[in-house]
Simulated scan of single mutants.
Amino acid sequence: MKIRYLMLHAYGMGGTIRTVVNQANAMAAAGHEVELVSLVRRRNNPQFSLDPRISITTLVDQRAGRQPDSIGRKAWRRVRGKIVPRGEFAADYFTERVEWAAMDYVSKLRDGILVTTRPALNLISARRTPGTVVRVAQEHMNLTAYPESIRREIARHYERFDAITVLTRTNRLEYQRLLPTTPIVQIPNAVHQVDQERSQQVNPVLIAAGRLVPQKGFDLLIEAFAQVAPEHPDWRLRIFGTGPRKAQLSGLIEQYGLGEHVTLPGRTDRLEKELTDASVYALSSRFEGLPMVMIEAMTHALPVVAFDCPTGPRDVLTDGVDGVLVPPRDVHALAAALNRVIADRELRVRMGRAAAKTSRAYAPELVMPLWEDLFSELLQGERVADNFWVSNQKDL
């Protein structure tokens, strides 16, 4: 099979980039012809390891900075026929030059499979990729997280896809209601590996990780930990990641007097070791798709305390078994759950053991063959069942 993955920035960091690279590596390892297409390039080297058999193509090289467009960016946003709508989380990337490069690339394809990986790229593919190409749209975020401008365009154009893949059952039901005639296929992302070194529950460390952006709710987590620290002064909160809200989060740490209790170490290349050395994982997101770092934490036998946000946590966790779910954005409930789990090592050990068992459903050896099966069925012209993942998980 010839499989092309079109990404916004294959040289960047982030959960979506990592999961797409993992898929590409698995397809190359299975013997397929794989191309990774990066719409823009702002770094010299990819941040995640690529199988040497994968070819990587850049459409717009921005390492020397953005080149000027023929019209101003504000004017381009008003151009009739422009595909990427306002409200797309990465809309600022899509200047005239960048959007035209994406449209030109997909319109010249004639065969194989094209996998697009975010709404902007999905909409471009839906409207410009020829019908001789098998078109698969990946959705890494829940539908309700998008503004109305994005949902409206999804409803208008996504029916042209051969399949739309989503991460959770909740996502699948949302998209089925919106697009009842289009195959909506549930395939979760896979973790790097499930056989990880497990936490021994000996270090008083609460850990969280992700981009320092409002979505991740680290401001809420810091506020909750301000209620935890007085009861458990020996415990520390470590939030790994980089992003535009670092200064604001640092200000909150100072405001709550948590300088000795909360740290923002930035990005780390040894997150697996940090997870092993921790004792609890916290997910404070305002919304999610499928929180992969949370599942990776579970492979280390870490219990999870999470907001029951849309979507993802409830699709993975069983409240009281492998973690604790609290109402979304309820800081006091989050603090109470953290206090409860932190105070009871026996509970943490029991939940951690269950978390490691739950995480096995996301093993690459289980998930990656689903992609291969899906692509094979689509190339053969078969209509894929909406319960594709469910029907392929009978042995779990």
Rank of each mutant, 00 (worst) to 15 (best):
T311E: 10
T268F: 06
C309A: 11
T276A: 13
G289A: 03
M298A: 09
D269Y: 02
H300M: 08
V293R: 07
T318I: 15
T311L: 02
A306Q: 11
R329A: 14
R286L: 14
A282N: 01
R314E: 14
L271F: 00
D308V: 14
V280T: 10
T276K: 15
D322R: 02
D308S: 13
F287V: 10
D315P: 07
T268N: 01
L275V: 09
P313C: 08
D315M: 03
T318Q: 14
R314G: 09
A297E: 06
T299L: 01
T311D: 11
D269M: 00
M294E: 07
D277N: 15
L302I: 05
E272W: 02
T276W: 09
S279W: 07
P291K: 02
V293G: 01
R329H: 14
S285M: 11
V305C: 02
P291L: 05
V326K: 11
M294V: 08
E296T: 03
E288W: 10
R270D: 05
S285C: 13
E272Q: 15
V326T: 14
M292T: 04
I295Y: 02
H300F: 02
R267V: 09
G312N: 03
V293N: 03
L302G: 08
D322K: 08
A282M: 00
E272N: 14
V316M: 04
A301M: 05
G320A: 12
A278P: 07
S284I: 02
G323W: 11
T276I: 02
L317K: 06
V280M: 06
Y281N: 10
L290C: 00
R314K: 15
F287R: 03
M292L: 11
H300K: 10
E288G: 09
I295L: 01
V316S: 00
V321E: 14
P327N: 10
S285G: 12
V321W: 11
E288V: 07
A301S: 15
G289R: 04
F307P: 08
V280A: 11
L325S: 08
L317V: 03
V324K: 13
R267F: 13
